[in-house]
Design a protein around this nucleic acid. Sequence first.
DNA 1: TAGGCCATCTGGTCCT
DNA 2: AGGACCAGATGGCCTA
Length: 141
Amino acid sequence: MKSCSPCSSDSGSESDSKGNDKFETAARRRMAANARERKRMQGLNTAFDCLRKVVPQWGQDKKLSKYETLQMALSYIMALNRILTDTRKNNTPRRQWLDLQFDSLQSEAYSLGCLMYDSPGESDLAQLPFTCHFEGFGLSS
DNA sequence: TAGGCCATCTGGTCCT
DNA sequence: AGGACCAGATGGCCTA
């Protein structure tokens, strides 16, 4: 925890009380802003925790970083979306076909988890097993 | 010890 | 004016 709270040093030789008031209200405002920012970031972090819970994390004892969480969420959504669109096209009985896809999704997610920790540095979107085909999601129609 | 990740502080900008 | 959001700076903790 870092705190370099605005310290009131030279308490006036000429006791300029108006200047003092200004300084104090500014300091108070700063501290309030800091508290709000802290709270905001805590909210953001709990949101990240929620996201971590719903995103695949197989094969990992270590929790995903924020960046990794976002990457994983993105590829996960892409993969689910792909399943959805493929289901529409497919003729096989829906239930059976979904089971099949779910299995493959699980193994994809597992290998993604391995890949993210095996490859140093480069966690590029292009390298994710859940490939991103933006054009294939029919978002426009 | 270097590098990655994180929490916090801070000043700036935009919005209400 | 005050709050929300953001990005940069800084320092602590942890791991390879």
